[in-house]
C-alpha cells in the first residue's frame, strides 16, 4: 500500500479555491445568522405578545430539522414554490442563515437573561430608559458571557459549510470529493481534508477559550 500525496500538489489550486469558498460561506452566514438571530431574540424578549409563540416555533423547529434537510429544501424545493432560480451558493447561504439564526437567537436570549435583574433595577433607578439600559448596561455584560457560545457556533458554522457539498456548492468538501472521484485516491485526498479542516477549526475553538479567559471578569456582576 503506497500513498502518493502528489495528487494534492497536482490539484492544489482547485482545492484551495474550495477552502476559500468554505471560509467565505462560513463568514457570510456567520454574519447574517448573528444579525438575524439578534433580531429574532429581540422579537422574542421585547416584541408583541402574539409574536412570541411564532418565534419560539421557528427556533424549536430549527432544533428539530437537520441542516442537510434545510439546505436541500432551500436548493431544490424553494425555487419551485417561489418560482425563482437560485445558485447553489446562495441557497446554501440562505439555508445556513435560517438554520443558524435560531441558535444565535437562543444564545442572545440566554446571554441577556443571565445578566442579573438587579443591574436593570439599578439602571432604572438612575433614570435610564429601557433602550439605554439594554445598550449600555445589559448588552456589554451579556456579550462577554455569550462569547464561548458564539465561538462554538462559529465552529459549527464552518462544519456545516461542508454539508453544502451535497447541493454542489464548490466548497472544500465538494472539491475534495471531485478530486477523489477523478484520481481514485481517497486516502490521500480525505486525509488531507481532515488536516485542513482541523487547522481551520482548532484555532477557532482554542482562540475563543483563551480570549474568553482574558475577558470573563468583565461579564461578572
Amino acid at each position: 500500500m503506497d500513498f502518493d500525496f502528489a495528487v494534492i500538489a497536482d490539484h492544489w489550486r482547485f482545492l484551495a479555491s474550495g477552502v476559500g469558498v468554505s471560509l467565505a460561506l462560513a463568514a457570510l452566514s456567520g454574519v447574517t445568522s448573528i444579525a438575524a438571530g439578534f433580531v429574532v431574540a429581540l422579537a422574542r424578549l421585547y416584541g408583541p405578545r402574539w409574536l412570541r409563540p411564532i418565534v419560539v416555533l421557528y427556533i424549536d423547529s430549527m432544533r428539530a430539522i437537520p441542516v442537510l434537510v434545510v439546505l436541500v429544501w432551500a436548493f431544490f424545493a424553494l425555487p419551485i414554490v417561489a418560482g425563482i432560480t437560485m445558485a447553489p451558493l446562495f441557497a446554501a447561504l440562505l439555508g445556513l442563515t435560517v438554520h443558524l439564526a435560531a441558535y444565535a437567537a437562543e444564545i442572545f436570549r440566554a446571554g441577556i437573561e443571565s445578566v442579573r435583574p438587579g443591574q436593570t433595577r439599578a439602571s432604572l433607578a438612575l433614570g435610564m430608559s429601557q433602550g439605554e439600559i439594554l445598550r449600555r448596561i445589559v448588552l456589554p455584560q451579556a456579550v462577554v458571557r455569550m462569547l464561548p457560545a458564539f465561538g462554538s457556533l462559529l465552529s459549527v458554522t464552518i462544519k456545516d459549510t461542508a454539508i453544502a457539498s451535497v447541493i454542489a456548492v464548490p466548497e472544500f468538501m465538494r472539491q475534495s470529493e471531485t478530486v477523489q472521484g477523478q484520481t481514485f485516491q481517497p486516502i490521500e485526498v480525505y486525509t488531507f481534508a481532515i488536516l485542513v479542516y482541523f487547522l481551520m477549526l482548532f484555532p477557532v475553538t482554542r482562540g475563543v477559550e483563551i480570549f474568553y479567559r482574558r475577558v470573563a471578569h468583565l461579564g461578572r456582576s
Partner: peptide, 14 residues
Amino acid sequence: NLPLILVVFWAFYV
C-alpha cells in the same frame, strides 16, 4: 474539530 460529513466519507472510503 472535524465536520461529521467528512468523517462519514473518510470512514466509507478509507
